[in-house]
Simulated scan of single mutants.
Amino acid sequence: MSFSFAPYLSSDIIVQTHAAAATVALVLGPVVIHRRRRDRTHKVAGYVWVLAMAFAALSSFGITDFAMIGPFSPIHALSVLVLWSLWVGMRHAFRGEIAEHRDALRSLYYRGLLIAAAFNFLPGRVVNRMFFNDHRELGYVVLALGLGLVLADVLRGRIARKNRAALAA
């Protein structure tokens, strides 16, 4: 098993720019989410993250390799959801609704970006070929782990809400 940038470099420019924006968002997400203080660094990194997410979502409409309905595939529905979630999350921030802002954008990162990233490991995708060219079926393992992490996050959120409700009662 060996890593190679060749599948990425030989892909269409729209795929390359989409992947670059998604990678920026993937790397910056934890920086923005886990900063203790909401200072200038948080704001600048947050705006870069939002722009990277918006570019990744918008550029996905130029990728039609897995088209099922005209030029679109189910992943394009996720792109629409990403754009909506960005708008909702930023609207909350501008209104000073910080808890709602945090919840919307954390959810977008953990349940949107990480799910999309995990699906990029499916056999036949560029990311799968970059990491697992000789053993492409290993992409299913990455997908299962990614979806497991998202499920754990969902369950953690439900438990936390239930605990907060119990304390409030």
Rank of each mutant, 00 (worst) to 15 (best):
S4C: 09
S4L: 11
F5W: 15
A6D: 07
Y8H: 10
Y8G: 01
Y8F: 15
L9C: 02
S10P: 01
S11P: 02
D12W: 13
I13A: 04
I14G: 01
T17L: 09
T17C: 09
A19I: 09
A19T: 15
A20Y: 02
A21V: 07
A21L: 00
A22T: 09
T23R: 03
V24C: 06
V24S: 05
V24Y: 00
L26M: 13
L26F: 11
L28I: 05
G29Y: 01
V31R: 03
V32F: 09
V32R: 01
I33S: 03
I33K: 06
I33L: 13
H34C: 07
H34Q: 10
R35G: 02
R40T: 10
H42N: 12
H42K: 01
K43N: 12
K43I: 13
K43Y: 11
K43V: 14
V44M: 13
V44F: 10
Y47S: 01
V48C: 07
W49N: 11
L51I: 12
A54V: 12
A54L: 08
F55T: 15
F55I: 14
A56G: 11
A56D: 01
A56H: 02
L58P: 02
S59P: 07
S60K: 04
S60T: 06
G62S: 07
F66W: 14
F66S: 06
A67L: 00
M68W: 14
I69D: 10
G70A: 05
G70M: 10
H76A: 03
V82A: 03
L83D: 02
L83E: 02
L83R: 10
W84S: 00
W87E: 04
V88N: 11
H92G: 04
A93K: 04
F94V: 06
R95L: 13
R95M: 11
E97N: 12
I98Y: 10
I98A: 08
A99I: 00
A99V: 04
E100S: 14
R102A: 06
R102P: 07
D103P: 00
A104R: 07
L105C: 03
S107E: 13
L108F: 05
L108Y: 04
L108E: 05
Y109P: 01
L113Q: 05
L113K: 00
L113F: 06
I115V: 12
A116C: 04
A117N: 08
G124V: 15
R125K: 03
V126F: 12
V127Q: 05
N128P: 06
F131A: 11
F131C: 07
N133Y: 05
N133R: 08
R136N: 08
E137W: 15
E137G: 08
L138H: 11
G139W: 07
V141A: 03
V141Y: 13
V141K: 08
V142S: 02
L143F: 15
A144L: 08
A144I: 13
L145M: 14
L145D: 02
G146M: 15
L149C: 07
V150R: 01
L151A: 08
L151V: 08
A152W: 09
V154K: 06
V154M: 14
L155K: 06
R156W: 12
G157D: 12
R158E: 15
I159T: 13
R161E: 14
K162Y: 14
K162D: 10
N163P: 00
N163M: 14
R164H: 14
A165N: 02
A165T: 05
A166L: 09
L167A: 10
A169E: 04
